[in-house]
């Protein structure tokens, strides 16, 4: 893997500034959410949600449909602003004040529930565009790929098993391959924290298995938050699980702890 856990450095400019400050993770926490509430027309999608993710942790988040899992990711990545509460990346970066692009540059990568890739670009170009680089207009006008960058794209292509499809138009990939491409795009960003919203939906068993292996290999160097419905998958990769229900945390713990929690049995697993 070419992915390094070091913080972005040396990128100038307004976006780069966030990254240059670096992630202050002295307390071993990469993401810290406290009392987050989000409501849509009076309906509370998130209700005083508090959650923290440790450095290098692989956290699985489960919960019934509508529990607020995607909304939580929207809040972390700046797509939705919380009505109340705080979200910190490390000790110092207040995510509620940053734009989507700044949050990404700071080191948070996100995979959407519905795979979103650039359908008209080639697989290679998808990776090129998401690659960690100075992403200001005047830099992209004159940029060309260094050989180190080409190598890192080639390595990611290998990781996501699309090295034979580098020049294919991404829209022609299978659903599972698109999911992998989006994961590859995340890896190219070299994020500290990866948010993965239902990453194995629509994958074959074999693909699911390999995705699980990939995530386990990423944990440690990166922190991961995986939202998934596929309980077999969660069981395979999970160390710590958070159960969301009606916009708040219902339970947290190991798989067996969560499975034996009466509240969880009632609302989710027991059905």
């Amino acid at each position: 893997m070419s992915i390094s856990a070091t913080t972005a450095t040396g990128e100038g400019g307004s976006l780069g500034r966030v990254a240059r400050e670096g992630l202050d993770s002295t307390h071993g926490v990469v993401l810290y959410m406290e009392d987050i509430s989000v409501s849509f027309d009076g309906f509370k999608a998130l209700n005083k949600l508090s959650l923290s993710i440790d450095i290098g942790e692989l956290r699985c988040v489960i919960g019934p449909n509508g529990a607020g899992k995607t909304t939580m990711m929207d809040v972390i990545t700046g797509k939705t602003r919380p009505d109340e509460g705080t979200v910190y990346f490390g000790q110092t970066i207040d995510l509620t004040r940053l734009s989507e692009a700044q949050i990404s540059t700071a080191g948070i990568g996100r995979k959407f529930q519905k795979p979103t890739i650039f359908e008209h670009h080639s697989v290679f170009e998808n990776l090129e565009l998401s690659m960690k680089a100075d992403k200001r207009v005047r830099k992209t006008l004159f940029s060309s790929l260094s050989s180190a960058q080409k190598d890192s794209i080639a390595e990611t292509l290998k990781t996501i098993r699309l090295n034979d499809s580098a020049d294919r138009v991404a829209g022609l990939l299978s659903h599972g391959q698109k999911q992998w491409l989006e994961i590859g795009m995340l890896l190219m960003q070299e994020p500290r924290l990866l948010l993965l919203d239902e990453p194995v939906a629509g994958m074959s068993d074999d693909e699911t298995e390999r995705t699980g292996e990939l995530f386990l290999s990423l944990a440690g160097k990166h922190s991961l938050v995986v939202v998934e419905h596929d309980m077999a998958f969660v069981e395979k990769i999970a160390r710590k699980i958070t159960v969301l229900h009606e916009g708040g945390v219902l339970a947290e713990g190991s798989m067996s702890e969560v499975q034996n929690d009466p509240k969880v049995i009632e609302v989710y697993l027991g059905r």
Binding site: A101, R110, L129, S130, T140
Partner: peptide, 28 residues
């Protein structure tokens, strides 16, 4: 044909994805 152009086309097709890749699409 520059990377700028590829970012533009990406904005056309999936602006949100471009933002989450770290590009400030307003400037583009």
């Amino acid at each position: 044909t520059s990377r700028f152009g590829r970012v533009l086309a990406a904005i056309r097709d999936a602006e949100q994805r471009v933002m989450f890749c770290g590009y400030d699409t307003v400037h583009y």
